[in-house]
Amino acid sequence: MAETKESAEPPTILVDPIDMSKLDQSFCNEIKSMPYGEELVACFACTTCTAACPIANQWDYKPHQLIRMIILGMREEVLSSKEIWECLTCFQCQERCPQKVRVTDIFFDCKNLAAEEGKVPNSIVALGKLLLETGQLYEVTEDWQREDLDLEPEVPGLATEPLKEILKTTRTGRLVGSDE
């Protein structure tokens, strides 16, 4: 994104600006047209979402910055960011937003777009793989532990096979499949 120009004179610009003409101006409208994206441009950058977020302190791009980046058209940066995948989906940002921007839902939209382009972090693909192989994300507690808790040895009604079958035909299946 760096703007470099050949010039005989010494450079007058030492900052490294983002060239707006090289950004994807349609990205904002793309997100806006997706489910729950219509209030995207209502954002007035109050940073309430970032204030509400329990984990944004660890993020390079804070929630309000991601929203600004979407509006500016920084498609590449947003869709390849780790932040959209690290979102806990606690919906605090969305609940508190004074302009009714569906921040969490918009991050879901971004994740869907990123997945369409195959930009899914390995850790997420690994989870998909686990889901596909075992039909569940978390191992069922061991028999003896269940016994200690006065539970039946087997989880009643637990059937992972049909889920595995269904998942094979979904995008999760395709994502994991393409990775292999």
């Binding site: 007058t12 610009i13 900052v15």
Partner: peptide
Amino acid sequence: VHLVRPNPDGSLDIIVYDSLLDRYLSYN
């Protein structure tokens, strides 16, 4: 605004500091 620079074609290049992103944006 960081700086305004005229172009030979009459347009202006304007570099803006975006304090929310902590980045500089260059517009024509």
